[in-house]
């Protein structure tokens, strides 16, 4: 077996156009050797989930700065469950108030990274989470 690459979908749900963070993270994940499927802006939860399935992604990272995070996290996590794909790791970041984070984690998000998180922290966490996920396969 050659090498099993980590495949991650990085998505911008909704109408929010602030993609600096998503792009910086996408590049950092690539530089860490991962394959990043970048969906671009204005994605519906349906599109994001279908992309995850078609691309056989291990994880999906969502970036939201518009305040609509609770809506989108819940929707995406629910739809993954519906599609029998709740093993897919969901993580994200953006402008997300601390008070909302416990709710997102409880709903099934693996991690929520706030502004100022160094990208290596994000990479490290994801590598670990994917290794753990794969060990259960």
């Amino acid at each position: 077996m050659d090498e099993r690459k980590i495949r991650v979908v990085v998505a911008k749900p909704g109408l929010d156009g602030h993609d600096r963070g998503a792009k910086v993270v996408a590049r950092a994940l690539r530089d860490a050797g991962m394959e990043v499927i970048y969906t671009g802006l204005r994605q519906t939860p349906e599109q994001i989930v279908e992309t995850v399935l078609q691309e056989d992604a291990d994880a999906v990272g969502i970036s939201i700065l518009s305040g609509a995070h609770t809506f989108y996290f819940n929707k995406i996590i629910d739809m993954l469950k519906e599609k029998d794909a709740s093993d897919v790791i969901v993580f994200g970041g953006g402008v997300i108030p601390d008070a909302d984070i416990p709710g997102l984690l409880e709903a099934g998000a693996g991690a929520v990274f706030g502004p100022g998180t160094p990208t290596p922290e994000c990479v490290e966490w994801l590598e670990k989470a994917v290794a753990e996920k794969r060990s259960k396969e």
Binding site: G14, L15, D16, G17, R42, T44, S66, A68, F71, Y72
Partner: peptide
């Protein structure tokens, strides 16, 4: 955002975004 992108509040694309930013 729906206003900025030309969607009414009852458009499916506006879900979750009304009045947010």
């Amino acid at each position: 955002l729906p206003t900025q992108i030309g969607y009414d509040s009852d458009d499916p694309m506006a879900q979750g975004e009304c009045g947010k930013v």
